[in-house]
Design a protein around this nucleic acid. Structure first.
Ligand SMILES: [Zn+2]
Length: 305
DNA sequence: CGCATTTGACCGGCGC
DNA sequence: GCGCCGGTCAAATGCG
């Protein structure tokens, strides 16, 4: 039930505007402080398990094994500052009863106008390989802006509207020649302030030391932390991890954001979910230091245009 | 002029 | 078998 479409209003205005962001930023620089961070990690062994799908389809009731070898700590709810929307970052409980489908407008011209001008598209690879089910890692970040800087260069190759989510999902691919890492970005249907970034694959190259002038330290912040946690799950994620950082001016205002890490692992039939709540300091993820400062000018410059 | 984004079409899987 | 849906391609467009 629930006409998901109508959800669009209130927040929709704020978020929906893609280009309008710029204006919005200038207009309300501090109205909604964006701050990180919440990360969710999930791994599909071979079944391609999406936590999104889990959320959407299975609802909050995860397939958690009763044994729950891992102590699941209920997030104390991110006690966000007063100004911000203090909501539990780990909002696993998404749409309840999301089974309704509101068919409003389909961009896809499957039916209806089937007037294709050109001709059949080129025959792509005959053997349509199903792509190795690479582990997927999802990060949840509170941010107004969708562009979260993670140090890599991405090329957008698609944008699609997903069901039960008024916000479109964007598909990116790493621009490096050999690197086939993909990433998709979307906003949480319930909390437009939350941006979920899902990475898929592993980079086969070092981080482009771009970002003019100052570059980030070669030591990835998060991996260290996870390296101790992941072994429990039975896979090495440390290689993939790279928490996106909201590239936002206002972000700087946030001193010590709360970091919530959640992991969902799927091994064959079993699924185990883990959640960690740690202060940012402990995670040391928030070593924004001078990095953001460097990015600032870059952002501003863009905004200007 | 090169490259990133935009955007509609197409495709393959899955459920009815 | 058809239609829904998520995912990808590629031509066109925009931007520096
Ligand atoms: Zn890459």
């Amino acid at each position: 039930m629930s006409a998901a479409a109508s959800v669009t209003h209130s927040y929709g205005d704020t978020i929906m505007m893609e280009k309008k962001e710029e204006e919005m930023r200038e207009a309300s620089p501090f109205s909604s402080p964006t701050f990180p961070i919440s990360g969710e990690f999930l791994n599909d062994d071979n079944g391609a398990l999406d936590f999104f799908e889990l959320l959407d389809l299975h609802q909050p009731s995860f397939e958690l094994p009763p044994s729950s070898d891992l102590p699941v700590d209920p997030p104390p709810a991110a006690s966000a500052t007063s100004t911000a929307t203090a909501s539990s970052i780990l909002s696993s409980s998404t749409e309840a009863g999301a089974g309704e489908e509101n068919k409003a407008n389909k961009t896809d011209g499957t039916s209806g106008g089937s007037s294709k001008e050109g001709e059949g598209r080129k025959k792509k690879k005959k053997t349509r390989q199903k792509r190795a089910r690479e582990p997927r890692v999802a990060f949840k970040t509170r941010s107004e802006v969708e562009h979260l800087e993670d140090g890599y260069r991405w090329r957008k190759y698609g944008q699609k509207a997903v069901k039960n989510n008024p916000f479109p999902r964007s598909y990116y691919r790493c621009t490096s020649a050999r690197c086939g890492v993909k990433k998709r970005v979307e906003r949480s249907p319930e909390d437009p302030a939350v941006v979920v970034t899902t990475y898929e694959g592993q980079h086969t190259h070092p981080i482009p030391a771009v970002l003019r002038g100052s570059l980030r330290p070669p030591t990835p912040p998060l991996p260290l932390l996870l390296s101790e946690l992941l072994p429990t799950l039975g896979f090495g994620l440390s290689s993939y991890l790279r928490p996106p950082q909201p590239l936002d001016i206002r972000l700087l205002a946030a001193p010590r954001p709360l970091t919530t890490i959640s992991a969902t692992a799927a091994s064959g039939d079993r699924r185990s979910q883990q959640r960690w709540n740690k202060p940012a300091e402990a995670a040391a993820v928030t070593r924004d230091d001078g990095l953001l400062q460097d990015l600032l000018p870059l952002q501003i410059r863009k905004k200007e245009k």
